[in-house]
Write a protein that binds this DNA or RNA. Structure first.
Lengths: 196, 196
DNA sequence: GTCTATAGTATGATAGAC
DNA sequence: GTCTATCATACTATAGAC
């Protein structure tokens, strides 16, 4: 991890794999697909990685570490509840922008990967994510900024779903920046679509 | 289609297949899985169906026909814009409740299936769905019921995403009915989560 | 309507040469 | 670091007996 013999090649292969996993799904991507895209033969991949699972493992765990570091920063900050909620939404859309493939893989294949012991940490991350959002929502309600008649569990799910599923249609470099999308979403979430 | 020799057995097999496709994904479900669950051998399935694709085809097309019939009813009604939007959301959550497997399959596997010519109608249904929601939103804005500063395209995507992705966590018979969930969601969508 | 048996193909992974 | 060659397994689908 810290002193890889040939970090560049390894990372390049991971990037290629991530792209394919995101596009076609983990199970639907063969090691031959990855090797083809990299311009080598499938057997050669095993010089770099133990297995296909090792690849997706490294892709996801690296990404999650960064993302949850950002959530932790928000929770540790002394911003007011509304600002913290906004930052959390912005950070998430930023992840969709900068780590599109990783988010897509997590969205599409986490349920399957979770059936293996080595990916149990993905379930732990899910719980951690729930804690982040629930904490933000609760402090918003406590501070009187958010409605107190909401089912917070449902509210959390709606926020989580809407934010992350955007990876299925958002494309970096498209008509709207991820920041514009995040702000439009926050406007709907906070104020609703009804007039008045 | 209209005068099947043994409609009951066929439908039973489709129900079993739908359950498995929804649980594990279309590609990740083998014909042996389906046959095992039905208590027969894999070869016997081909007495009833041409292929695995034929099965998912019949499952999805039947479901879509019903769902879009309901949307058409809403569009044809003379309810006011707000009521029509509410009905569309309720009908969608109702589909998640009554056709859980079908919605899950469509959510998870439509992108893959769309790569085959025979599933082109799924893309057509996607366009149709967009038309339904955009029509509802536009008439809401025109009637002065909805905010006129919204990016309707984004608003449509947020609504669609949040509604349908609920199939990933909603379980019939759970703590909240699908109607309660739909109403809570409508409340957030229309009024926002901010106090005031 | 289901079984036996199997064809033909694709997959993840390995061993050893270069 | 990549290639050649291949193993063992799993898959969809078919043919014909019962």
């Amino acid at each position: 991890m810290t002193a890889e013999p040939t970090p560049t090649r390894r990372e390049e292969l991971l990037r290629i794999a991530a792209r394919l996993f995101a596009e076609k799904g983990f199970r639907n991507t063969t090691v031959r697909d990855i090797a083809d895209a990299a311009g080598i033969l499938s057997g050669s991949l095993y010089h770099h990685f133990d297995s296909k699972e090792s690849m997706v493992d490294e892709i996801l765990s690296t990404f999650q570490e960064e993302l949850f570091g950002q959530y932790d920063e928000i929770l540790a900050s002394d911003d007011d509840p509304r600002a913290r909620l906004e930052r959390a939404v912005l950070v998430s859309f930023d992840a969709i922008d900068r780590h599109h493939d990783e988010v897509a893989i997590f969205q599409n294949d986490a349920a399957y990967l979770l059936t293996f012991d080595r990916f149990a940490y993905l379930g732990e991350r899910n719980r951690q994510s729930r804690e982040v959002w629930m904490t933000l929502l609760r402090s918003g309600v406590d501070a009187g900024v958010l409605r107190d008649d909401l089912d917070l569990e449902l509210t959390y799910r709606f926020i989580r779903d809407t934010v992350w599923v955007a990876v299925s249609w958002y494309r970096p470099g498209g008509r709207r920046t991820h920041t514009e999308i995040a702000q439009q979403y926050l406007s709907i979430l906070l104020e609703g679509i009804e007039r008045g």
